Amino acid sequence: MSCDFLALANAGIQGLHPYQAGKPIEELQRELGLDHVIKLASNENPLGPSSKVVAALQAASADICRYPDANGFELKAALSERLSVLSSQLTLGNGSNDVLDLIARAYLEPGKSAVFSQHAFIVYPIAVQACGARAIVTPAKDWGHDLDAMASAIEPDTRLVFVANPNNPTGTCFSAAAFTAFMAKVPSDVVVVLDEAYIEYNSGEDLLDGVNLLAQYDNLIVTRTFSKAWGLAALRVGYAIANEQITDALNRVRAPFNVNSFGLVAARTVLTDDDYLQRGCAVNATGKQQLQEGLARLGIDYIPSAGNFIAAQFEGDALAIYDGLLREGVIVRPVGVYQMPQHLRLSIGLETENRFLLQALTKVLGS
């Protein structure tokens, strides 16, 4: 080429590497000629979609020639009722990744900074760097967020702090009391993004629900998704809840029609299927115990998780284990990009899938 077009891109983008998604089942089948492959790499809901959603999508297919509702009125109304917030506090996105990117674009630029933790979701550094802003990364504590260190790391040019509860890929979480103490230390002009993509799987005493704190903190944004517990990963629907001024800022950079019609219909429908949500959470709790007991029998350490996945630790570089599992027809997620080269993230599947994974791990470790 006569021109280096990458060099023409802004400096932040030049230094980025594309996000690496979990390997698709079809790709592994093509590569190794395998008939039976299970994917436990992307924290998807193993139940499959809600039957109510399938029926609603069939009915909606007659209107695929029409643009979706750009404002997502009906979905916002359903979320408003469920969460007891105003529709004007909601921003819809093409998955919560899209919402996180909107937040970064709205509040970051060269000369500004954002704080997030070591081992935090990889989209945070990507969004920050793409805006030309500076990333301030605090060391993790017991694989999770050190909230005191994060509060201390805030500088005069800091505009955003990203925190995830539970955190991906470690599965760690913090309590409502810990978060409240953290917010007391954050300046009022620094926006805190509380990523609750896995909140439906979290349980226990002093459980943090960020939506309940929005009235107390004007500088708080809560982000959530329909991709995990609600089983809509393919349709990409996420959302943010915040005060109306922040929501106004986000909608100024939000692309029109960023959530498609099927996504809007599916998300609105699944909110009426609490039985589906409860079954999924029950399957996850049972599967988590199954995997934890199996890993313990194999002598494999793991990080206790509040999500629908477990980060398991191996001796040496975990990529060899990952490759071995691929040959056995099991796709999991290496997390070396998160500075965790000895770990693999194992999504929790159905009982048969978890058993297949543990059998494959036994074979790989014994070879």
Rank of each mutant, 00 (worst) to 15 (best):
C3H: 13
L8H: 07
A9H: 08
N10Q: 14
G15K: 14
A21Y: 13
I25Y: 01
L28P: 13
E31T: 12
E31N: 10
L34E: 08
A41E: 07
S42D: 15
P46T: 07
S50L: 12
S51G: 04
K52A: 14
V53R: 11
A56P: 05
A62G: 05
R66K: 14
G72L: 03
K76L: 07
E81N: 06
L83N: 07
Q89S: 15
T91G: 03
T91S: 15
L92V: 10
G95C: 03
N97Q: 10
L100C: 10
D101R: 08
L102P: 03
A104V: 01
R105C: 12
Y107C: 06
K112M: 07
A114Q: 02
V115N: 05
V115R: 09
S117E: 08
H119D: 01
C131V: 02
G132Y: 12
R134Y: 06
I136F: 00
V137A: 01
P139I: 03
P139E: 08
D148C: 06
A149R: 13
A151T: 09
I154W: 05
E155N: 04
P156E: 09
D157C: 08
L160N: 06
V163E: 11
P166T: 13
P169H: 04
C173I: 03
S175W: 10
A177K: 11
A178K: 09
A178G: 00
A178Y: 01
A181M: 09
A181I: 02
S188C: 01
D189V: 03
D189S: 14
V190E: 05
V191G: 03
V192H: 04
L194R: 02
Y198K: 00
I199R: 14
E200M: 11
Y201L: 07
N202Y: 12
S203V: 14
N212G: 15
L214Y: 06
N219V: 10
I221W: 04
V222D: 08
R224G: 14
F226I: 06
S227R: 09
K228P: 11
A229Y: 02
A233N: 13
A234V: 07
I241V: 15
Q245P: 00
Q245N: 11
I246F: 03
L250D: 05
N251T: 13
N251K: 12
V253I: 10
P256Y: 04
P256V: 12
F257G: 01
A266I: 05
V270L: 03
T272V: 00
D274M: 10
D275I: 11
R279S: 06
G280W: 10
A282S: 13
N284A: 06
Q289L: 14
E293S: 12
A296C: 00
L298Y: 08
I303Q: 11
G307Q: 01
Q313F: 01
A318F: 03
L319W: 04
I321H: 08
D323N: 14
G324Y: 06
L325R: 03
V330D: 00
I331W: 04
P334Q: 00
V337K: 13
Y338D: 15
M340S: 10
M340L: 15
H343K: 11
I348N: 12
G349V: 07
L350T: 15
L350A: 14
T352G: 00
E353Q: 15
E353G: 06
R355I: 08
F356G: 00
Q359F: 00
Q359N: 15
T362R: 14
